[in-house]
Amino acid sequence: MTPPEAPTNGSASRGNVPPAVSACLWTIRKRADFLRAARATRQGRPGMMVQARKRGEAEEAGQDSNAIRVGFTCSKKVGNAVARNRAKRRLREVARLELPVHGRPGWDYVLIGRRDVTAECPFEQLRADLVRALEKLHGASS
């Protein structure tokens, strides 16, 4: 089965939809980066915990200094593998939508899922939790 073709007559509008993959978001993959974020400031919200830190000049050498890096984690307390993966998928989507707008270049963010909340709460509430956490984190660090 082949996917449908995009309209060629210009009827498809881009609208106000963020891109599927944001060019300014990088994923944190190294444990050392997660540990550095864990020692930095954090903000707890009902749907998630957000850790944030401004990267130093020495860390910027190998990558774009304007990049926003983000990591995701859920402990086994969140539930079985299915529940953890669902929570992380939701956190990834919230980060994709909100960090390009409310995040700051040169910062690392780690989003941590909460038990029985991250995977179940309404998506708009999860988005609002991230925005509010970022406002508080950057308000305190400005």
Rank of each mutant, 00 (worst) to 15 (best):
Q51W: 06
N85M: 10
R92Q: 07
G71W: 04
T118E: 12
V101H: 04
A20W: 08
S142I: 05
E57Q: 07
P46D: 04
H102T: 00
R86A: 12
D108A: 06
A83P: 02
V94F: 11
F34G: 04
D33T: 09
A119E: 12
G103Q: 02
V94Y: 01
G10S: 10
S142P: 08
L126S: 00
L35F: 05
V110D: 04
P7N: 07
A38P: 03
G71T: 06
V101T: 05
A133M: 02
V17Q: 10
V78P: 04
E120K: 15
P18D: 05
P46G: 04
P19I: 03
A58D: 12
K136F: 01
R36N: 12
D116L: 09
P7Q: 12
A95I: 08
T27G: 07
G113I: 00
R104N: 02
A83Y: 08
R55E: 10
E5L: 15
R39L: 14
A83N: 12
K77H: 07
V50S: 01
A20D: 13
P100T: 05
G44H: 13
G113L: 01
S141I: 02
Q51K: 09
A67C: 10
V94S: 11
I68K: 03
L99I: 00
L137I: 06
R96Y: 08
T8P: 06
L35S: 13
I68A: 09
